[in-house]
Simulated assay, not measured.
Amino acid sequence: MANDNLIKQTCKELNLTYKQLGELIGYSESAVKNAAVGNVSEPMSFAISQYFKIQDLEAKLKTCEDFKQNLKDFLNS
């Protein structure tokens, strides 16, 4: 993702409004709007990349938890 379109691409990909994205990454709606039409700051870009990493890790954790539960069910049957 290019920095100049990072906000728009992220909102489109996640189907979020600027306000929703701001709440997820710790920025105000106005800061996100300004970044969408200007340059995305390095801290905001980092916050977005960390948000994606967190989402990925949460998905992996859910997969592990599901596997753990399936294994428990199998061993208890």
Rank of each mutant, 00 (worst) to 15 (best):
S30N: 08
I48F: 04
I54A: 03
A31R: 01
E58I: 15
K68M: 07
T63N: 02
I54F: 00
K60G: 05
D4G: 06
Q50M: 13
I54S: 03
Q9K: 14
Q20C: 13
D73Y: 00
F67L: 04
A31V: 10
D73R: 02
Q20I: 15
T10D: 01
L6P: 07
N70G: 09
K60I: 13
K62W: 09
E42S: 11
L24R: 13
S41V: 07
F67A: 05
A35Q: 06
E13S: 09
Q69N: 02
M1N: 08
K72N: 10
N5P: 04
F67S: 01
V32D: 02
D56V: 11
V37P: 01
E58Q: 14
I7D: 01
L14V: 07
A59Y: 01
I7P: 04
F74P: 00
Y51P: 05
F74H: 05
F46K: 14
G38T: 12
L21T: 06
P43R: 02
N5V: 15
L6G: 05
I25G: 10
A35D: 03
G38Y: 06
V40F: 03
G22A: 14
F74C: 08
Q55S: 06
K8R: 15
S41A: 07
Q9M: 13
A2C: 10
I54N: 05
K19V: 15
Q69T: 08
S28N: 12
K60L: 11
E42L: 13
L24N: 11
L6I: 15
L6A: 12
S45L: 08
F74W: 04
D73K: 06
K60S: 08
Y51F: 09
M44F: 00
K53M: 13
F52E: 08
K33F: 05
E65G: 00
F52N: 06
L71H: 12
F74K: 09
A47V: 11
L71W: 10
N34M: 08
F46R: 13
T17R: 03
Q9F: 10
A36R: 04
M1I: 14
G38P: 01
F67C: 00
N34R: 05
T10M: 01
N34E: 01
I54E: 06
N39Y: 06
G26A: 14
S28F: 06
L6F: 06
E65I: 07
